[in-house]
Simulated scan of single mutants.
Amino acid sequence: MYRHLLVPIDNTDLSIATIGQAVEFARTLGARITFFHAQTNHVSLLHGDAEIVRLVSPADFSYNFEGRARELLTKAESAARAQGVPCTTATAVSDSPYSAILEAAKAEDCDLIFMASHGRRSRVGMVLDSQTLRVLINTEIPVLVSATTCPPIPAVTIGTIRDEHRSLAAVLHAWMHLLREPATPGASDGMELMKAMLYYIQAFPLELHHPKEQEYLFRKLRKRTSSVNAELDELERQHERDHQLVDELAVLLREYEAGNTGRGELEKAVSAYATFMWEHMGREEGVILPAAQRCLTDEDWEEINAAFCDHEDPRFGGDTDAQFRRLFSRIVNLAPSSNT
């Protein structure tokens, strides 16, 4: 049976579903995964859209053409870790994604390529998109095509919630790995990066993600069934505890910056917080989301989906979702890279 999967991912929302399917498939097989992203060679596009974006908005250029790859792969790693699936990541700069996929599969010694088709369904079945079709035509390695076109609203909403979980998990993994790296005397980059990580945790999951879970997902689920009320009560208590733990982390980080506490103590606190959050997110994904799939109506899902897709928040101003995407991208691109 297959032991090593190459899973190509791109910068579309469909990759969220592909990653989840691939991780579940690998878990059932006891296989490992190499997540792969073929990055566009933006240097070759200097007379096209890439150059326009670079000149008009350097921040957008850095995110879309440089930082996005690491973000995608870091989230994929977090999804695999959550299921205990060993994984590594790989990237290549190429204007021919299918060729890069085939080369990566050979280089990584993979025995199966697991990829999505973004094609539309016709009367005769799924019409494969051009890159998937080219991989199928030219490969000598078996390919499993996962159809992820036009998922229903519940699947889209659950994908968004899981993606936000993966973002938090990735930041926590990056923070833990950063603390395991030897400290450089006099260096401030590590401290500034940890401050950015703390801000991300304070502002995104605590101020946006948790409240929307309680106001929309939890509230509607309580209206439809009482079977998971005890779990919802516990999760809401954990949301309160989350605020307390993050406040304690903030104090400890200030103490560390002032030289009043050691790196080991900070690492222990971050690790304990990460364990708390992984258990919390696992309970939501393992109990609450399946219950919601069983009990909520289409109208419920439409309202929940609208809430999670709208991250315009007056407390932060402007396009909040874009701000956090850029902050997340900065964190995972500056943090030391690690593979499981």
Rank of each mutant, 00 (worst) to 15 (best):
T160F: 04
D310R: 11
E164I: 06
V127G: 04
A203L: 04
A307I: 05
A170L: 09
L252G: 03
W175T: 01
P86V: 05
L5N: 00
R27P: 02
L133H: 08
L5T: 00
P205C: 07
T261R: 10
L128G: 01
M1F: 04
E240N: 13
L172D: 00
N333Y: 11
E302W: 12
L221S: 00
R315N: 14
I201P: 01
Q83D: 10
G30T: 05
L14E: 03
D310K: 03
S99A: 15
A26S: 07
E302T: 12
A292P: 05
T149G: 11
S122Q: 15
R54V: 02
S130Q: 11
G318M: 04
G286P: 09
M126T: 06
V143K: 06
P211K: 06
A292W: 01
F65H: 07
G159Q: 00
F328G: 00
G67S: 13
A82Y: 07
E236L: 09
E267T: 08
R68E: 06
L112F: 05
A258V: 04
E51P: 01
A69L: 07
R180P: 04
H47R: 14
L249E: 01
R32W: 08
L55Q: 15
R241C: 07
G286T: 06
T18L: 15
A26E: 03
A258I: 06
T40L: 13
G20H: 05
E285Q: 06
L179F: 11
D13C: 09
Q21S: 12
A79W: 01
L73P: 00
Q83P: 00
E284H: 05
P58H: 13
H209M: 05
A82T: 03
V85G: 00
V143W: 06
D49C: 06
M277L: 14
L29K: 07
D298K: 14
D111E: 10
M281R: 07
R224H: 09
I33G: 00
N41G: 07
